[in-house]
Design a protein around this nucleic acid. Structure first.
Length: 540
RNA sequence: GGGCCUGUAGCUCAGUCAGGUAGAGCGUCGGACUUUUAAUCCGAUGGUCGCGGGUUCGAACCCCGUCGGGCCCGCCA
């Protein structure tokens, strides 16, 4: 059974109505790691609906969390905002300076700034969660009952956290973090409490009170999370493996939730996504692929397929090079198969059946539009990459596909894919081994691989190419002429050509590529190759 | 120190929860189309399931141990 269905079954046992939550702190650029969080949630919701449940996806925007440090993309001015809530400080402008103007005129905050492009990516990828901004939840008093419960009995909370996490809390710990005289959550000492006021003094020597029903502060994370579960009615939540560790925030959250008077949600821990060869994704080091950037390269259904077809506890290495080609072709192959038909074969072993069933489910989940299965384009990523490099005009690509693949009207999907393919090729992520490159100088190695009787083909080739027009057809004719004049087969001619022009054994159709190259340079390359061979055969 | 994940074909992984002949895809090799848009199609190749014990009629799967890899346990989401 697919992981999403396993989760849905667990939800069936809990009840009919479900709210599946995801949550991210908008502290910096979002990356595809965050996409796993939200897509995991999205896929659980789809599976739950398939199982006949009422389910909704919500996205808690943790903009009540404080700015932790001045990230490399921020100017030093942000030093003053450390400890301030992300939803109540200005967004950085293009140079990393606080954009006061937008903040004051339209209330555009730091959190909004990073959230906006992520939401745009989500729309493209077919996820439309209900947004729950956390800061607003505090300000409107939604946290008040849980906050009161905690502040009324700090000892009970302290006991749970210390026992479950095995960590000792400081003497002056209190289950409410007040905002100080400047709006920071850091360095505030709680000196007293009588509902609804928490008394404090801050690092500037100022004393004050914080109303826990009005969002003049927030709950520490380990309480914040279970409190949200309660008033939002959350019944299921996927989260990163960090929360899932023994003694981690889910463990303490479970007990604290019951203390608040509600059941914790069904958990699903997922592994991180890392960038191939570069370790974990991290906003602060700039080692990220943003969701928007990823979608420039790869269609949404393939990104979804990656998540759907990987079990949540499997770490994903996101590879923007060859890995992406393989992933895309894998997707293409699977979607062109009729899995339902294959599943009707009763001789399948249990193993094979499971494999087909899970992939079929993953394919269904890969579609950005629920219920609609992305149709196979029947053109592989490799092939499209090739065409896109050879043909600069889209029309020429379609013409070519019409003859080779019998595709006369390119589908919207295919057009879309070509557009992304072009931007991928233009990006530094495009793998070198996919890039078509014609040699500048002879490849000694490739020429050495040619049998002696083929050497004369090279001079015939030079002659033929000199005499034919430098066009697609002309070059093709020249190849044929070469075969005749050297009395070898076309296959051998092509072998020679690939050795000469690309330094390879095989390659893509050469004529259109050569037609786009400089004739003089190519003819010189052939002569150079002859020289290399002669030198090798004449004793020094 | 505590805990989680992971080890299966050259590669990426299913299969472990419900024990019943070891599975896919890629790669590689061969063939076909009789010659080329790295194409497509067909066929073949390939694994003492990390290691050692135990339970069982039967173990990749359950139990115990062990080794290797990754990771989490700070007001951090």
């Amino acid at each position: 059974m697919h992981w999403s269905d396993v989760m849905a079954q667990r939800l069936v046992e809990r009840g009919q109505n479900h709210i599946v939550a995801t949550g991210i702190t908008p502290s910096g650029e979002f990356h595809i790691g965050h996409l796993r969080e939200i897509l995991t949630g999205d896929m659980i919701v789809r599976a739950a609906r398939k199982a006949g449940l009422d389910a909704e996806l919500v996205f808690v925007v943790d903009n009540a969390d404080p700015l932790r440090k001045v990230y490399p993309f921020l100017s030093e001015e942000y030093q003053a905002f450390i400890g301030h809530q992300l939803g109540s400080i200005p967004a950085p402008d293009a140079n990393g300076h606080p954009d006061w103007n937008r903040f004051e005129t339209e209330g555009w905050s730091y959190g909004d700034h990073f959230l906006a492009p992520f939401l745009e990516a989500l729309a493209q990828i077919g996820v439309q969660p209900k947004l729950l901004p956390n800061l607003a939840a505090y300000q409107s008093g939604k946290f008040a009952p849980a906050s009161k419960r905690a502040c009324d009995d700090p000892g009970a909370i302290r006991e749970i956290i210390e026992r479950v996490s095995g960590r000792e809390l400081p003497e002056d710990w209190f289950p409410w973090q007040p905002l100080d005289s400047k709006g920071s959550l850091d360095g505030v000492i709680v000196t007293g409490y009588e509902y609804p006021m928490v008394h404090w003094h801050d690092s500037h020597g100022v004393e004050g009170v914080s109303d826990i029903t009005k969002g003049e502060g927030k709950l520490p994370w380990r309480l914040d999370w279970p409190a949200k579960w309660g008033f939002n009615g959350i019944t299921c939540e996927p989260f990163g493996k960090d929360h899932g560790a023994a003694g981690g925030s889910y463990d303490t959250g479970k007990e604290i939730a019951r203390f608040f008077g509600h059941e914790p949600p069904a958990p699903l821990t997922y592994e991180w996504i890392s960038l191939r060869g570069q370790g974990a994704m991290s906003s602060s080091t700039g080692n990220t692929i943003g969701p928007i950037e990823a979608l420039e390269l790869v269609p949404p259904e393939i990104l979804r397929f990656l998540i759907a077809n990987s079990k949540p506890n499997k770490a994903i290495e996101f590879d923007t090079g060859m890995g992406l080609v393989n992933l895309a072709d894998d997707f293409e192959r699977w979607s062109s198969r009729d899995l339902q038909e294959e599943l009707s074969d009763s001789s399948l072993s249990r193993r094979q059946r499971v494999q087909l069933e899970d992939t079929a489910t993953a394919l269904a989940l890969a579609s950005p539009t629920p219920g609609h299965v992305v149709s196979a384009t029947s053109v592989s990523f490799r092939h499209l990459a090739l065409l896109a490099q050879i043909k600069t005009e889209d029309e020429d690509v379609w013409t070519s596909l019409a003859t080779s693949h019998d595709i006369h009207e390119p589908t919207v999907e295919l057009q879309d894919r070509l557009r992304r393919m072009r931007s991928w090729i233009a990006s530094p992520h495009f793998p070198e081994e996919m890039r078509i490159s014609v040699r500048q100088t002879p490849s000694e190695e490739a020429l050495a691989g040619l049998e002696a009787e083929l050497h004369q083909v090279i001079s015939c080739l030079h002659e033929a190419l000199s005499e034919h027009p430098w066009t697609n057809d002309g070059i093709t004719s020249a190849f044929k002429a070469t075969a005749e004049s050297s009395s070898t087969g076309m296959r051998q001619v092509y072998r020679v050509c690939y050795a000469v022009f690309m330094g390879e054994e095989r390659g893509p159709r050469l004529a259109p590529i050569l037609a786009n190259c400089d004739r003089t340079e190519m003819l010189e390359l052939i002569l150079d190759c002859s020289n290399v061979i002669e030198r090798r055969h004449s004793p020094a």
